[in-house]
């Protein structure tokens, strides 16, 4: 089939770096059907062309279909901060399809080749360029600023709102927030006061001692006595209400409102 192979390959390898420059490709890549002859063809004499293939030499067995095989993750270096992945200059391991389509083509990352590793070495050490404390900081900020936290307080006994109350409310809605990360507004909120029922205020959550995010909260009262309990309003976050103190209005207006997607009111 390849009569001039020895001659041609010799001439090419001696004259060009094409075949020699395979140092970057460490191993053979196969992403296709790999077949094997069921009946191997007859041996041919040394130096003579291979013997003619018969029909039986075209019967193949499938060795492997590499299209369905899991591909190995590849290393890329980020050139900007990417939400959920990392800061610029960080080397990350991601799935090859995702890396190619979502990072490399839009220019958010470059290949982790030796030249690029050298080039982006200083970017990571330089702390000034680090924008967020962790890759998940921005997603956390986005989520927390979107929710309306229901803070449920006692209807029968007097209380002053403390960070641990808010922490419990966070835990009930699925967020684990430490006490020291929660900052309450300066003006104390005390109760029980039915005038504050279903009114809004905000708390500030500090993420990794760095990023600060305001969270919209709504005060509710609850009693152990079943008769005294206020009936629960479904979708309370969709109803408009007032802030507890007028000073809160300014901050609350900057926060986005939670929208329930699946509710069909009609």
């Amino acid at each position: 089939m390849w009569k001039t192979v020895p001659f041609v390959t010799k001439s090419i390898s001696s004259s060009s770096i094409l075949l020699a420059a395979s140092s970057l490709i460490q191993q053979q890549i196969r992403t296709t059907y790999i077949l094997k002859r069921k009946f191997p063809p007859q041996l041919h004499k040394k130096g003579s062309p291979p013997k003619k293939l018969r029909s039986r030499h075209y019967i193949y067995d499938l060795v492997e279909d590499t299209n369905t095989k899991k591909q190995e993750d590849i290393d890329v270096i980020l050139t900007t901060f990417v939400e959920g992945l990392g800061n610029s200059g960080e080397k990350i391991k991601v799935k090859p399809q995702f890396a190619y389509n979502s990072l490399l083509l839009p220019g958010l990352a470059v290949y982790a080749c030796p030249e690029n590793l050298e080039k982006y070495k200083d970017t990571l050490c330089n702390k000034e360029s680090v924008e967020y404390s962790s890759p998940n900081a921005l997603p956390t900020i986005k989520t927390l600023s979107r929710i309306t936290l229901s803070v449920v307080m006692n209807k029968d006994h007097p209380w002053v709102l403390k960070p641990w109350h808010v922490k419990t409310s966070f835990r009930k809605s699925g967020y684990v927030v430490p006490d020291d990360a929660i900052t309450l507004p300066e003006k104390p909120i005390t109760g029980p006061d039915m005038g504050l029922e279903n009114k809004e205020f905000y708390v500030t959550v500090t993420i990794n001692n760095k990023e600060k995010v305001n969270v919209r909260c709504r005060l509710h009262h609850w009693s152990t006595d079943i008769i005294d309990r206020i009936p629960y309003t479904p979708y309370f976050w969709e109803e408009d209400t007032e802030p507890i103190y007028p000073e809160f209005k300014e901050v609350l207006e900057t926060l986005p409102k939670k929208v329930t997607k699946s509710v069909n009111k009609n």
Binding site: L24, T31, Q71, I74, P96, Q97
Partner: peptide, 13 residues
Amino acid sequence: TDRTIQLINANYG
């Protein structure tokens, strides 16, 4: 093909 993309990745571009 998938192989083309893999080769591009393996050759760094």
